[in-house]
Design a protein around this nucleic acid. Structure first.
Lengths: 179, 179
DNA sequence: GAAGATTGAAGGCTCAATCTTG
DNA sequence: CAAGATTGAGCCTTCAATCTTC
């Protein structure tokens, strides 16, 4: 496989010429990761459309799949979603309208609400996860089995570094804010 | 490096138990890529804040760095940004208010507008690219040199596959739409 | 009629302010 | 006063409609 230049290579060369101090490899990697994420998001949304679901909805539902029968508090959903409390409230409103989740008052803390999957929500989530999985398999078919095996450790390694630095700085600055 | 389980491993196990047909490795890879992109975006925005710039602004400016002196049409900026024309018009409005780009009538096509970096816009873009590069280097420091060398071909491979399938389907469906 | 660019409505996000309860 | 959750304002995005020019 010759693997000629892609959309970024020309740009990177220009950038290197204009700003000589930059690291072309690093800049190329993060730019491609961002672009990849955009493509993946659009592809999955397209695949989920027949189920009447979007990716941001599935993200919440899929996390709720591992909740205890009593449900989870809104606050407990935030770190997994990397979302503000306001955004989560909005998502839950839509999911409740769709009939996929229930809000029930927390018996142990009257400030809180417990979020639970409904029966249909649970079934839809399983179907949607299957769709998402199939889409992911199709995308990764572009890589050889050996390449696919290399991918996971790399992603894990970068994420680990980010969670220790980035999340730490977020946490330290989060005196009032919360996510 | 033992590399214990991260935020996703527990969820993946739950999903596999509830929906036996899913591919855990594929689902894990695409989920981590998305999360990685979110972290990267937030980190860069934080690093760019002192310059009064955001990542979405830099994306447009950096692409304009390789434009000819006569500038580029709005339409020519779209494929690189993966954006709707309406969104690009909005971005250009903000960039023009900031004094970083100029809109000049296209001398050869009176429907079109040419977009060009201003003098200060060009200088700001170079500074911002340096900031973005430094941030990227810091993030990728979590990987060994050998791992970093493996990363680029993998990303390139997946993107290539997506551009041929996803972009193709987008193009074929884009009878009226345009991006 | 098609293409380049813009506008307005609606959706989802962040931030700051609010209300209730611990 | 701090924490859980919600609300409203402002920003950026998409989609559909519009206006001008080819």
């Amino acid at each position: 496989m010759p693997d000629g230049p892609d959309f970024l290579d020309g740009l990177l060369a220009t950038w290197a010429a204009e700003a000589p101090g930059i690291n072309v490899d690093a800049l190329g990697a993060v730019t491609r990761i961002r672009r990849l994420a955009t493509y993946l998001e659009r592809g999955v949304d397209k695949a989920l459309a027949p189920l009447g679901m979007t990716l941001w909805q599935l993200e919440v539902l899929a996390f709720l799949l591992q909740a205890p029968r009593s449900g989870l508090q809104v606050t407990q959903l935030l770190p997994a979603a990397l979302l503000s409390p306001a955004a989560m409230t909005n998502r839950l409103d839509r999911l409740q309208e769709a009939g996929w989740i229930d809000r029930i008052p927390d018996p142990e803390d009257r400030r809180a609400t417990r979020i639970r999957l409904t029966r249909t929500g649970r079934a839809m989530t399983k179907k949607a996860l299957q769709v998402r999985s199939d889409a992911a398999v199709a995308v990764l078919a572009a890589l050889s089995p050996g390449q696919r095996a290399k991918l996971a450790p790399l992603l894990r390694g970068i994420l680990r570094g980010l969670c220790e630095s980035e999340c730490a700085t977020i946490a330290s600055e989060a005196s009032t804010s919360n996510y």
